[in-house]
């Protein structure tokens, strides 16, 4: 038993303390959080936009005329293509294409990764959000329009707040998924949390400690987020307004 403890101690020292390698994990975590946080925001913006385009085409496309119809048809086509491509290819491939092909001339890997993950997440957020918009009673939209609000005002003041409330838990889960998916950022030279653990492993030739530490950090973050989502869900359920 004490031999095992000694072993653990020296492994711990080797992997984290010696040469301040725990700081690698801290820096990696910072990169992971930075990418995840800004990607979430970008994902929401894209997702809401795409969801509004898709659902307004589905609900109102027939009624539009002339130029407005033409523009909406094109926007809807772009949105649909975006959803198909993004959801039909692996995120790590999208990330590498962004970094090595589209932005080959830039070296700001974190920025490019944030965009790649945000664009990826946007597709999933869009579908979540679209179902949220569809779940809002049609009478709400009509009440808004009959007061004299235009289409965008009605969506903004009346439909979207209710849609958002309906999908908050699903959105939160999407963000948890996104946080974990950023672990492939190492493919484009970023030292995120996962890559930091792997670097330690390469240096110390001991796999157990750094990889378990990385796993634990992800797990703690996900458990905390899940717990927050649970609180949120209960809050939403008790207050039905």
């Amino acid at each position: 038993m004490s031999a095992w403890l000694e072993d653990f101690k020296s492994e711990f020292y080797l992997n984290f303390i010696k040469g301040d390698k725990w700081l690698w994990l801290v820096d990696g975590l910072k990169a992971t959080l930075k990418i995840a946080f800004f990607a979430v925001i970008l994902g929401i913006v894209i997702g809401v936009l795409v969801a509004v385009i898709r659902s307004s085409w589905d609900q109102n496309g027939k009624k539009l005329r002339g130029g407005a119809k033409f523009i909406m048809r094109i926007l809807n086509f772009i949105a649909k293509t975006y959803l198909t491509v993004i959801r039909g290819t692996p995120v790590v491939v999208q990330l590498m294409i962004m970094y090595y092909v589209i932005f080959a001339s830039s070296t700001n890997a974190i920025l490019i990764a944030t965009m790649a993950f945000g664009i990826n997440s946007g597709a999933y957020v869009a579908e979540i959000f679209r179902s949220g918009i569809m779940s809002v009673d049609k009478g709400q939209f009509e009440a808004g329009r009959s007061l004299g609000f235009n289409y965008i005002q009605t969506m903004w003041y009346i439909v979207i707040p209710q849609a958002l409330k309906n999908v908050l838990p699903a959105l939160a889960n999407e963000f948890i998924t996104l946080l974990k998916e950023t672990s492939v950022a190492g493919y484009v030279t970023i030292t995120d949390l996962t890559r930091a653990g792997d670097l330690i492993r390469g240096k110390t030739f001991s796999a157990f400690m750094p990889l378990i530490a990385v796993a634990l950090i992800y797990l703690v973050m996900v458990v905390i987020l899940t717990w927050l989502v649970g609180i949120l869900e209960r809050k939403l359920r008790t207050s039905d307004h």
């Binding site: 009478g139 009509e142 307004h241």
Partner: peptide, 9 residues
């Protein structure tokens, strides 16, 4: 409207 359509939020 028949169903009131007040804004619940």
């Amino acid at each position: 409207f028949q169903q009131f359509n007040l804004f619940p939020h």
